[in-house]
Nucleic acid binder design. Structure first.
Lengths: 294, 294
DNA sequence: CCAGCCATGTAACAGACGTTACGGTCAGGT
DNA sequence: ACCTGACCGTAACGTCTGTTACATGGCTGG
């Protein structure tokens, strides 16, 4: 037993309501299941609306909603909402005031200056990227017939991973090259003519990346390169080159503008794919929830 | 297609309701100020209760509450609650829902505007980060006596990896939490009181991250949190909270400002460590070259 | 020191809310 | 084929909601 001075607050399991609903999803009649889904789909906001609105959202009648919450064990809809509010209050234990009270003293100059530095570097990067290159990158990556692989240097590999994460959700057929050499070779061999290899290469440019690019070029794989203004040697092998600034307040180069570029390309792919992306996203989401992966 | 003056999506004012209330805190009569405080103290739950309850909580009469919200510009109390619910819904929004609401497509001509969007978001982030929080993060991470571990969500984990990569070079004793549960437990157990756990948690906040934070808090581990303006529930367990904007041209939230924040913290650590960091960097480099790893 | 005004609480009101009662409908068992 | 039970929507009801009107109190300016 802990000492008596400690506040005995342990709190109920977070999202207990959501969990209760989810766990017994099968045991409900169809109409009430629709209610359950409606609540979980927009949790917890949907449950905080009025009975009438929630009923409309779930496409059932108001009484069905009431029956649902009573079956959950609540005295009535207000009681259910109280539970929801209780959860919410617990999660959000005064985050705003917490910050507000702490943000007392400071010399405001320093931080804002570094913010500006990042901001201008990003802006410059976008001014200097040829619109045609950007568009080309998007259309390559949005083409569902092309497999996509990505890789980078020790640090920039994370950017590649980030891009792949997005592309996987949006269109599939995308992979980050494994770190082990066997895996790399295997993955490379799956790439055929007109598939796409996205590379990130920043100074000091790594030999491994260049060799990889050469191997890919031999196989007539399209190469998209993210690099710095001094241009990695990979550039001459690449079909699309997207340079970004690397100004930074620390001795390291900054990846901020590059990340911005990556995200804007992702945005372009979303637009290019249109409803197809939406559809796939929905599928990924529902499957992920079913497998409790998300 | 020429620009039809479609304004680029900037996102709704983050926590607009809370901010509006806070910004004009002085301009209100005493009783209504009590209402404002009551709402902010338990945001946003307090505002979602009934007028009567909120009035009781603030120790004023119901009409005062109503007058307060109308003065804020809302048609009535229900309208005010709708706004609150809207914010809440957005904060838990999935990429799928966002895709529907963000209509502004990124035309090739809008590239520079996209750049500006990222730039201003970054700038804003740095303006809103309390300097004290930033300094606190740096001093925690620069302390060679503290072990450091980091983790994040599916996407934001990459930011954690990036931070760890830097810290490893600069000061060692830093690790990214493994993905396998056994590895995680093991790594967690190495953390002692006053060690540091850096977490990245963005909407939709992941339960696993919260549970991790709770376990760490129990062990009296110091928690540094990178999150979005809506604040992960981890915030209440964290000693240091660094919020960043997430405005983006794509349906996904942007990590650009967060990455900028991470890099600026790294820069701070470099400064704080001074020659020690330089020395270690040199060592890492020579050893790496000797082993043909770099 | 008083007049006027804003701020605030009390009291009454209309409407919307959640709830309950009832009847129709469909599936499965006899 | 008929009955039985569960399910679910329609309609009516009573309550509590948010709101408005009014009276009171305190503060400011003359």
């Amino acid at each position: 037993m802990a000492d008596s001075a400690a506040p005995p607050y342990v709190g109920p399991p977070a999202d207990s309501v959501a969990r209760t609903i989810q766990d017994a999803m099968d045991r409900w009649p169809p109409a009430e299941r629709k209610v359950a889904r409606a609540i979980l789909a927009a949790y917890p906001t949907a449950g905080l609306e009025t009975v009438a609105r929630l009923a409309a959202r779930a496409e059932v009648s108001p009484p069905t909603v009431v029956r649902f919450v009573t079956r959950l064990g609540y005295a009535g809809f207000p009681a259910f909402q109280d539970a929801l509010l209780g959860e919410l209050a617990e999660r959000n234990a005064s985050p705003l005031t917490l910050i507000a009270t702490r943000s007392g003293r400071a010399q405001p100059g320093q931080l804002e200056q570094t913010g500006e530095l990042f901001a201008t570097a990003t802006e410059r990067s976008f001014q200097r990227v040829p619109a045609a290159e950007h568009a080309a990158a998007v259309s390559l990556l949005a083409d569902p017939n092309r497999r996509i692989a990505a890789d980078g240097g020790r640090f920039s590999r994370l950017l590649a991973a980030y891009l792949v994460l997005h592309l996987t959700q949006l269109r599939g057929s995308s992979a980050l090259l494994p770190e082990t050499s066997v895996g790399r070779v295997d993955e490379l061999l799956t790439l055929r003519r007109n598939d796409v290899l996205v590379l990130f290469d920043f100074r000091r440019y790594e030999d491994a990346t260049l060799e990889l690019a050469e191997a890919a070029a031999d196989r007539r794989v399209q190469i998209v390169l993210f690099t710095d203004p001094w241009m990695s040697p990979v550039a001459r092998l690449a079909q699309v080159v997207l340079p970004a600034q690397v100004d930074s307040p620390s001795p390291y180069d900054s990846f901020v503008p590059t990340l911005a570029l990556v995200e804007s390309v992702v945005g372009g792919v979303v637009d290019a794919l249109g409803p197809a992306a939406e559809h796939r996203l929905a599928e990924v989401e529902s499957l992920g929830q079913r497998l409790h992966l998300l």
